[in-house]
């Protein structure tokens, strides 16, 4: 991650895998004008559940955001990781400006 970027946090969500889940999760952020810097989703195991990785800026609203995410019916679990979590690190080669 670039040095000048703001402090970041990585959230790891375990969710039921169906077509509406992403809308439920991202809607919570978008309607609070809270930008998601990165989103990564893939099914886990037999596909009944998915894992969503979210890259967000550190923000005083983050604890409230996490509580709201935890309230979603289709979210089974939320974990907050430090900024140095490597979920997004090796993806950078797909996102260079050239």
């Amino acid at each position: 991650m670039k040095e000048q970027s703001p402090l970041r946090t990585v959230l790891e969500l375990t969710v039921n895998n169906h077509p509406g889940v992403m809308s439920h999760v991202v809607g919570l952020f978008s309607r609070r004008a809270f930008n998601l810097e990165g989103i990564l989703v893939l099914p886990v195991g037999d596909g009944a559940i998915s894992r969503i990785w979210l890259l967000v800026n550190e923000d005083e609203r983050l604890p409230q955001m996490i509580k709201q995410v935890e309230k979603l019916e289709d979210v089974r679990n939320v974990r907050r990781h430090a900024a140095d979590h490597n979920a997004f690190v090796r993806l950078e080669e797909f996102f260079n400006t050239n």
């Binding site: 509406g20 809308s23 439920h24 309607r31 979603l72 019916e73």
Partner: peptide
Amino acid sequence: YGMTIPITKHN
């Protein structure tokens, strides 16, 4: 479905 996400507890 999309319109009622923010105004329901679940849908």
